[in-house]
Design a protein around this nucleic acid. Structure first.
Lengths: 189, 189
DNA sequence: TCGCAAAATTGATATATGTCAAGAATTTAT
DNA sequence: ATAAATTCTTGACATATATCAATTTTGCGA
């Protein structure tokens, strides 16, 4: 089983016979560092699995730039709202490093319903998982302080802390780089 | 077209012939004020449309009680994660007033795929809409201050402000009742 | 390898929001 | 209608986090 097939299986829980058929619709891509996969305002027509590299999702609104998330190998990346509803993208998606991706175009993605009988069910579950991830993030703001969010991220994704500019992590946790830096200092003691 | 059918249509964008069939699986209920539709830790087996009344979704974690949302007529209410994945519910769901609901049981809901051909597609879109609502809420914490969140809610749901205890609104916006009260005072000037 | 640009840190200070306690207002139950 | 309970408001104060500016460190391109 290829890496891509493993990724697909872990997300979509699809039967093995159909894996090859699904995987064949993804195309290998190697965006270079700083390349944009998507720009705010455009339409998002792709869903990508990250084999290698790091990708930042961010937006600029009223001069304020906010990093929404950093995606890492083994995960997918897209602007789900734009991808599903063909609305203008809210997010920029940019490679933080040279990357290796498997990308499916929206029209191929949408044709999967004709190929894999259970596809719409799997897709539903996939989106529901995305929902749960977001619910968790809302909760982190309702239940936790900035410091607790910092500690949680440090625990869950320690590697990120020496792979990406820390200001991006600060932003996705909803705090300034200065606050992030001070929490970091506190931790190191 | 009944109220219920209108609600279903607005959420699921289903064809008119199938509306009756779907609607027939919902049962009318009248929970009284303070009745629980769901308790944290249990499994959520119901999805309800609110015809009348107000419903609070909240959770208590480590002695901290957080209101996640207040649902109003014309909207549905459930613990989506628990409903879809049969996991223990994260949330309590409680009637803030006497209510009139249309409720569908999970097994009936799951059987809709056999009744309405396009059901899984509609369901996918429904969940995707829920995703977008949550994305919007995450953004409100990343881009906005407490005061901006207050003003946004006041603008979008002014009625809530004289229908439910304000401490619940404060909580769902991620602030204390005192802060909420002071922002309120500021507004009234 | 050097030099520049970006990022991170640090200190001083400002501001937003939280905490605690008391009292006023409102709602609910008897 | 009254009493009790809950909710809301207010003030004083504490704390977390933001802002601004200066400096150091790091990383990158020539």
């Amino acid at each position: 089983m290829t890496n891509l097939e493993q990724y697909i299986q872990s997300y979509f829980d699809v039967q093995e016979e159909q894996l090859t058929s699904i995987a064949s619709r993804f195309k290998y891509k190697e965006p270079a560092k700083n390349d944009f996969l998507l720009k705010q305002g455009r339409q998002c027509n792709q869903l990508s699995f990250i084999q290698k590299g790091l990708i930042r999702i961010y937006a600029t609104v009223d001069d304020k730039e906010v990093t929404q998330w950093i995606s890492t190998p083994g995960y997918f990346v897209t602007d789900l709202a734009s991808f599903i509803f063909s609305t203008p993208a809210r997010w920029n998606i940019q490679a933080l490093t040279d990357c290796e991706l498997y990308t499916i175009e929206k029209e191929d993605y949408n044709s999967l319903g004709n190929v894999v009988p259970e596809w719409h069910v799997l897709e539903k579950l996939f989106i529901a998982k995305c929902f749960i991830i977001l619910e968790e993030r809302v909760n982190s703001h309702l239940f936790m302080t900035a410091e607790e969010r910092y500690n949680k991220l440090l625990q869950q994704q320690p590697d990120l802390f020496n792979q990406v500019p820390l200001q991006y992590l600060a932003s996705m946790l909803g705090m300034t780089p200065e606050t992030f830096s001070r929490l970091r200092k506190k931790q190191l003691k």
